[in-house]
C-alpha cells in the first residue's frame, strides 16, 4: 500500500494533530473527540458552524475551520460518518450562546448521527439546527429514496453560511442562507482510479487502465456509468451538460464555479478541464462571477475531478467574497 502513514488505525488522530501543529494560530485539536475547533472558540454571541464527515476528504473539513468559515470539524474514521458523541463535544466547545448550526452532507450515516447529536445537545440546553447538502446530480433525486449525495458544493455552504454567521446572522438566518446555497448548487464528478482506504489496504473497486467512471461518489461509491477514457473536453462536456440540465437555471444572474480535484489528479489537469468548462459556460450563456480550481473535497488519492456551479444572488456574492482565514490550500 503506497501511503505515507504509520498504522492505518492512527491516520485520523495523527493528521488532526498535524493540522493543529501546523496551524496553531487557527486550530485547536480535541484528541478525545477527533475534533478540530477554532483556536479562539467559542466566539461569544456568534452562531457556531460545525461540519464533519468521514475522513479522507481533506482538506475538508478541518481545513475550512477558521474565522469566516467553520467553528469546528468532526472527523470520522476514513469514509465513515463521525459519531454523535464527537459532534456533541464539538457543539459544546464552540457554542457561543447563539446556537450551533450543522452542515451535513446527505449520507444516511451523517444525517442520522448529526440528528442524534442535535437531540443530545438540545437535551443539554444548546440550540441546534442543520442543513443537509445534496448537490450531486449524478444521483436521481427523489423524496422516496435517500436522495442525492452531498459533495464539493458543500464547501460553498461552509463559506457562505460561515460568512453569514460571522456577519451576525442568527440561527434561523444562517439556516435560511445555507438552504438557499444548497438549493442553488449542483455538482457532478468523475474518476479515473479508485482510492485505497488505509484500513482496507486495497482499492475499493477495480477499473481498467483505459476506463473511467462517471458520476462517482467521493467515498468510492460506484458511479452511474463506466466507459472508455475520453478526452478532457468530452468529459467536461458530459459533466457540464448534466449540471446545466438540472433544475437550477444557471443562465440567470452570475455563478461561482468550482473545479475540484479528488486527490490524485495534478493541478495541471484541473486547469485543462477548467479551460474547456469556461468555454462551455460562455457558449451556454452562463456568466462566471468567480471560479475556484483546486482540491477542496477529495477522496484520498483518487484521480478525478468534479465540477460545481452555484447560482449567486447579491447576498451570497458578498459572503463569498468576505475574508476568511483557514488552513486549506493557502500558500502564504
Amino acid at each position: 500500500m503506497k501511503k505515507i502513514i504509520n498504522a492505518p488505525e492512527d491516520v485520523v488522530p495523527e493528521q488532526l494533530r498535524g493540522m493543529e501543529l501546523a496551524r496553531p494560530d487557527l486550530l485547536r485539536y480535541m484528541p478525545e473527540a477527533n475534533v478540530l475547533v477554532r483556536a479562539d472558540a467559542p466566539v461569544e454571541g456568534k452562531v457556531a458552524l460545525v461540519s464533519g464527515g468521514g475522513s479522507g476528504h481533506e482538506p475538508a473539513h478541518g481545513g475550512f475551520v477558521g474565522p469566516g468559515m467553520l467553528d469546528a470539524a468532526c472527523a470520522g474514521a476514513v469514509f465513515t460518518s463521525p459519531t454523535p458523541d464527537q459532534m456533541l463535544e464539538a457543539t459544546k466547545a464552540v457554542d457561543g450562546g447563539a446556537g450551533v448550526f450543522y452542515v451535513v452532507k446527505n449520507y444516511t450515516g451523517d444525517v442520522l448521527n448529526f440528528e442524534m447529536a442535535g437531540e443530545l445537545a438540545q437535551a443539554e440546553g444548546i440550540e441546534t439546527d442543520y442543513v443537509v447538502v445534496d448537490d450531486d446530480v449524478a444521483v436521481e433525486d427523489s423524496t422516496y429514496t435517500s436522495g442525492r449525495r452531498g459533495i464539493a458544493g458543500t464547501i460553498f455552504v461552509h463559506k457562505i453560511a460561515g460568512a453569514a454567521a460571522e456577519d451576525g446572522k442568527d440561527l434561523a438566518g444562517v439556516k435560511e442562507i445555507a438552504q438557499r446555497v444548497n438549493a442553488n448548487v449542483r455538482s457532478m464528478g468523475m474518476a479515473l482510479t479508485s482510492c485505497i482506504p488505509p484500513e482496507r489496504g486495497e482499492p475499493i473497486f477495480e477499473i481498467a487502465d483505459d476506463e473511467m467512471e462517471i458520476g462517482m461518489g467521493i467515498h468510492g461509491e460506484p458511479g452511474t456509468e463506466r466507459k472508455k477514457i475520453e478526452p478532457a473536453n468530452s468529459v467536461v462536456d458530459e459533466l457540464a451538460a448534466k449540471v446545466l440540465g438540472d433544475d437550477v437555471d444557471f443562465t440567470q444572474g452570475e455563478v461561482a464555479v468550482m473545479v475540484n480535484g479528488l486527490g490524485g489528479t495534478p493541478v495541471m489537469e484541473l486547469y485543462i478541464a477548467y479551460a474547456h468548462l469556461a468555454d462551455v459556460l460562455k457558449r451556454e450563456g452562463v456568466n462566471v462571477y468567480r471560479s475556484f480550481v483546486g482540491e477542496y473535497m477529495t477522496s484520498l488519492e483518487m484521480a478525478g475531478f468534479s465540477i460545481t456551479l452555484l447560482r449567486l444572488d447579491d447576498e451570497m456574492k458578498g459572503y463569498l467574497d468576505a475574508p476568511c482565514r483557514v488552513a486549506a490550500g493557502r500558500p502564504f
Binding site: 459519531t83 449520507y107 444516511t108 442520522l112
Partner: peptide
Amino acid sequence: LISKVGGAAGPL
C-alpha cells in the same frame, strides 16, 4: 455502538 461505529449502522 452509538459512540464508536458512526456511519449509518451506528445510530441504527
